[in-house]
Amino acid sequence: MELFDIVFYVFALITLGSACVVVFSKNIVHAAFSLLFTFFGVAGIYVLLRADFLAVTQILIYVGGILVLMLFGVMLTNKVINVKIKTGTMQAWPAGIAVSILAGLLAGVFYSNWKDAQLPASTVDATTHLLGEMLMTSYLLPFEIASVVLLVALIGAALIARRNR
């Protein structure tokens, strides 16, 4: 087993283990903090897949932005005085049936011939230049639309969360 494979297994283990904690932990703050490790694990796998710029973006946007937002949400929606930052699970049976159907569908994908694919020899050392070029040429319109979507979401979120006048 090469070093590459060992690193993959370590990151996969971190990702899946902390994802399980997110789902099954009774304490929401614990769930939010283990989401951090999930994001870091996914970023590590991006590095293994030679998506260096995306790995950094993953950490910046998810850990620096979305996770902080989640933590604010957790803090703002739980009364701090009578500490009840707990959450229960229910409807386990319907969920189990739905998930096993979905997992079966996903497992069906792996009977195809993906095994033959090989990671092509590394041609570029950094993806930043290529990505920037693509975003500014062939994907310019989606890029601009994404910026408008973000602006609208920003204004809308501020408007919704605001206290009534």
Partner: peptide
């Protein structure tokens, strides 16, 4: 990872989770 996420959406009752 996707299946774990689906399990969470279907079983947890807290909107933030």
């Amino acid at each position: 990872l996707f299946t774990i996420g689906v399990v969470g959406v279907l079983t947890r009752r807290n909107a933030i989770v």
